[in-house]
Simulated assay, not measured.
Amino acid sequence: MDILLIALGLTCIIVGFLGSFLPVLPGPPLSWAGLLLLHFTTKVDYSIQFLVITAIVVIIVSIMDYYIPIWGTKKYGGTVYGQKGATVGLIVGIFTGPWGIILGPFVGAVVGELIHDNRDFQKALKSGFGAFLGFLAGTLMKIIICIVFAYYFISAWITG
């Protein structure tokens, strides 16, 4: 049974890492599930405090991931149209491959701002840049969390 739990846990860690930059996969929650699966083996016994703290971190990061691109758009002068455009751009970008995922929020925010006010292209670009920075910040945050979880998984598995 331990081998199955370890294999499933390792799969969750790997898929969770991929989910850090692929919006269709919940990266940090999957990585946390990998830690939880390893906890249920006879080899590793994480403390309840560790599991609760890491779960809280996952919840906070997951919530922040939705708001950081919106905040980035606002911070750079974007309106609600730019924010909605960034969201639509991200969703459309999922279906167009890696470049779509990266550039989707930017293009969406620019288009959203131009729909709102097509006279101010500079403002639209600034809003798109804010959405792009927000997307990058959220992605980086998720990648860091997944790397930390992978470290805890591997170190506990090896030493456990």
Score class of each variant (00 low, 15 high):
Val80Arg: 06
Thr73Lys: 07
Ser20Ala: 07
Ile59Lys: 10
Ser47Gly: 08
Thr73Trp: 14
Ile14Asn: 00
Trp99Tyr: 13
Phe50Thr: 12
Met64His: 07
Ile94Gly: 02
Pro69Ile: 14
His39Ala: 04
Gly93His: 07
Gly100Lys: 10
Ile60Gly: 02
Trp32His: 06
Gly27Val: 07
Lys74His: 13
Val24Met: 05
Val80Ser: 03
Ser20Leu: 10
Val57Arg: 11
Leu30Val: 03
Gly78Ala: 06
Val92Arg: 13
Leu90Lys: 11
Leu10Asn: 11
Ile14Trp: 00
Pro98Lys: 12
Lys75Leu: 15
Ile70Gly: 09
Val24Gly: 08
Lys74Glu: 10
Val15His: 00
Val44Asn: 01
Leu22Thr: 04
Tyr67Phe: 15
Leu37Asp: 09
Pro98Cys: 02
Gly77Lys: 14
Ile68Pro: 00
Gly97Phe: 11
Asp45Ser: 13
Cys12Pro: 05
Ser47Cys: 10
Ile102Leu: 06
Ile94Glu: 01
Gly27Pro: 09
Ile68Trp: 00
Leu22Phe: 07
Leu18Asn: 06
Ile60Asp: 01
Thr73Ala: 12
Phe50His: 03
Leu10Glu: 04
Val15Asn: 02
Pro69Cys: 08
Ser47Lys: 13
Val58Ser: 06
Thr87His: 05
Gly19Cys: 03
Ile13Ala: 04
Asp65Ala: 13
Gly27Trp: 14
Leu22His: 01
Leu4Ile: 14
Tyr46Asn: 06
Ile48Phe: 12
Ser62Gly: 08
Ile3Arg: 15
Thr79Ser: 08
Pro26His: 12
Ile70Glu: 09
